[in-house]
Nucleic acid binder design. Structure first.
Length: 420
RNA sequence: GGAGCGGUGGCUGAGUGGUCGAAAGCGGCAGUUUGCUAAACUGUUGUACUAGGUAACUGGUACCGAGGGUUCGAAUCCCUCCUGCUCCGCCA
């Protein structure tokens, strides 16, 4: 949620519109302004009526205490009509307010000035590239061919029990993912992240707090009967841990991490990445989340990005850092750097982490504040990123460590994890 | 799943229809005292929205788990829901 006080001033209003335009979001300026103005108008009306009612009700109490029954009855009759008018005005207010809140909750975050212009992912900007594109003396297979040939992943039975885009890991690869989880968590623990094991089923308000609801509700698994959803990322439970709380300045920054499964319906991606382990309904990942003072959020966001990169560096994977352009940015983020690893088998870059600074956008939705040095309650800034996606990491390691005969060099993988 | 009792400010806890944003205590902040700390004493101390003001601030409205209802007026009465605790049942 953006700071809606921005809509009250012309400069603020222009800032919001400019950011929307850069994102390619065609929300009409008039719609927004009308809703904001209508809201303020009806609030004034309701408050005036309520003030009258309160003042006269107080007098009624006094009249009754003094036993002035005739005056009491007359005033009470008069106040009935005020009460009626107030009731009608309040009903209108709730409609207007709801309309305004809906509009507001669907408004994306304001872009950081550093976000490059651009309409789609093709205009994302490469910030840096780390490592060389690995060369092989033979034709490198994509991970799914290796996995199938070596009986590492049982795609067929995954589909049998759960449907398309589900899979089963067998033996060594199951163990590899488990080991990678430990490796990543231990690495981040050393960098100061505190581990949490969290529920992976959350209430609607959590999904709202981090920005998944209401605009993108179709992309997630929601259990209608219970009003609960399977988390699409550990970001949701981790960030909402502090919802409705006022944190102490001295406790910031707070760095949390969790290894969780993630569930995504992948609606609208039919036919995309249908083979392999790249786009699935359930995968595992380590999520990093920071709660920080506003003035430190840029620094902390860069630090979190570096923390995610450390995993790739330790495993010797070639990757690049991308600054997402305005048109490719997520709804809740103010600025995002994606980490993409080079996949020698797929022969393309693959997103394995997305590190975002949400500024106060999520904090405002989830009501996460802190008492600043001046003693004032202020929204904190939230930052998060994957550190990193386990499934894609597994896929990458298979491609990086395959032998000419199509088998996997497990010893080399083990050695990397042990040494790092 | 059944039964019972609760949910009030940062915390503890009073309040069962009117002057209650809400007693009291604790905590926090400021001051007096003090070599320093502590103690004592005095004052002060919620949030959001809204109107005005450059601002400090001033006025108004709302908030006693959430949402509805009754009433001129609700923390207080009624309904629904959520949630906590205790006991029973079931169970990894």
């Amino acid at each position: 949620m953006i700071d809606y006080q921005l809509l009250k001033s012309d400069e603020g209003f222009q800032r919001v519109l400019q950011s929307l335009a850069r994102r390619g979001d065609a929300l009409s300026a008039d719609t927004l302004k009308e809703a904001a103005d209508a809201r303020r108008k009806i609030i004034r009306e309701v408050e005036a009526l309520a003030a009258e009612r309160n003042a006269e009700s107080k007098r009624l109490g006094e009249l009754k205490a003094q036993g002035k029954d005739a005056e009491f009855d007359a005033l009470r009759e008069k106040m009935k009509s005020v009460a009626d008018r107030l009731k009608i005005a309040k009903e209108e207010e709730s409609h207007v307010e709801e309309n305004f809140q809906t509009l507001l909750s669907r408004l994306p975050n304001i872009l950081d000035a550093e976000v490059p212009d651009g309409k789609s992912e093709s205009q994302n900007v490469v910030v840096r590239e780390v490592g060389d594109i690995p060369r092989f003396a033979f034709d490198v297979k994509p991970h799914y061919e290796i996995a199938e040939a070596e009986n590492l992943v049982d795609f067929e039975r995954g589909v049998k029990i759960s449907g398309a885009r589900f899979y089963v890991y067998n033996d060594k690869i199951a163990r590899l993912e488990r080991r990678l989880a430990n490796f990543m968590l231990d690495t981040h623990a050393a960098a100061g992240y505190s581990e949490r094991s969290v529920p992976i089923i959350v209430k609607d308000e959590c999904m709202f707090g981090t920005g998944q609801f209401p605009k993108f509700a179709d992309e997630y698994y929601r259990m209608e009967k219970d009003g609960l959803s399977l988390i699409p990322t550990g970001e949701v439970p981790l960030t909402n841990l502090y919802a409705d709380e006022i944190l102490n300045d001295a406790d910031l920054p707070i760095n949390l991490m969790a290894f969780t499964p993630c569930f995504r319906r992948e609606a609208g991606s039919a036919g995309k990445d249908t083979r392999g382990l790249i786009r699935v309904h359930q995968f595992y990942k380590v999520e990093l989340v920071k709660f920080v003072r506003p003035e430190e959020s840029e620094k902390e966001w860069r630090a979190l990005t570096a923390d995610a990169e450390r995993i790739l560096q330790k495993l010797g994977l070639t990757y690049r850092v991308l600054a997402l352009c305005a048109g490719d940015m997520g709804f809740t983020s103010s600025i995002t750097y994606d980490l993409e690893i080079w996949m020698p088998g797929l022969k393309r870059w693959l997103e394995i982490s997305s590190c975002s600074n949400f500024k106060d956008f999520q904090a405002r939705r989830a009501k996460i504040r802190y008492k600043n040095a001046a003693g004032k309650n202020e929204y904190i800034h939230t930052i998060n990123g994957s550190g990193v996606a386990a499934g894609r990491l597994v896929a990458a390691l298979l491609e990086y460590h395959q032998n000419a005969d199509g088998s996997v060099d497990w010893a080399a993988i083990e050695k990397k994890i042990d040494l790092s």
